[in-house]
Design a binder for these strands. Structure first.
Length: 211
DNA sequence: AACGAGGTCAACCGCGCGTCG
DNA sequence: GCGACGCGCGGTTGACCTCGT
């Protein structure tokens, strides 16, 4: 009974739900002075009535200065599709290759804008092509050769995803290692069944089709 | 203008892993 | 070896927004 009272009073003290501007300020100021980490003690020391978990989530997904907000570009969409075909729902791992994007954002993107298209006519075919491409190191190597030899980047004029492909080794067979700075150019793909052929087909339907 | 349906996204929850005493 | 603790991850929820009728 007594314990129950104590528990409920602790629960009352802890705030939940949307963060206020004041809370954001407190957390940002505290981290700028003391750095991040030790989230539970950070929450207490900063005087926030939040769990350490909640503080960490708010910082990583929203307050961090390098968080990129706004629409996910076509290049990022392609990258997400490709990485997801390789790693599945490893959102944090995928997010590492999309600077400024959080795992939460990518997860939401996938669930709201990709999964809903999964039953559409073209999607199974595209995913099958991507799977085939990932399984075929030769096709990927060919695609990479085509990529690096083409100058046709007129279709994608937006800036490359910064350095996202620097460390881009295929864990399954090490087939495709893109070492160039930034996102490679998107040439017209060659080779039926290659991943890029699928992506090209996707881009032909509209560069921002998921939005 | 009002309302309902569907979409979006911030936040929470539970679990598992690594570290430390 | 073991338990406590901190942290990170993926899944889920629910409030809010947008759009169509």
């Amino acid at each position: 009974m007594e314990i129950g009272k104590q528990q409920s009073s602790v629960e009352e003290e802890l705030r939940r739900g949307p963060w206020t501007v004041e809370e954001d300020l407190i957390l940002t100021n505290y981290i700028s002075k003391h750095g991040e980490g030790r989230w539970n003690s950070l929450a207490k020391c900063a005087g926030l009535k939040r769990t350490g978990k909640s503080c960490r989530l708010r910082w990583l997904n929203y307050l961090r200065p390098d968080v990129r907000r706004g629409n996910i570009t076509a290049e990022e969409q392609f990258l997400i599709l490709e990485l997801h075909s390789r790693w599945g729902n490893r959102w944090s791992k995928i997010a590492q290759h999309l600077p400024g994007r959080t795992d939460n954002e990518i997860k939401n993107f996938w669930r709201t804008r990709v999964q809903k298209h999964a039953n559409q006519q073209w999607m199974p075919r595209l995913l099958e092509r991507m799977r085939t491409a990932v399984d075929s190191s030769r096709a990927i190597s060919n695609a990479h050769t085509t990529l690096t030899s083409s100058n046709d980047n007129s279709k994608f004029s937006s800036p490359p995803v910064a350095s996202c492909c620097n460390d881009y080794s295929d864990e399954r067979d090490g087939a495709w290692v893109v070492e160039e700075e930034g996102w490679p150019e998107f040439p017209t793909p060659s080779g039926e069944g290659s991943m890029l052929a699928g992506l090209w087909e996707l881009s032909a339907m509209g560069s921002n089709m998921y939005v």
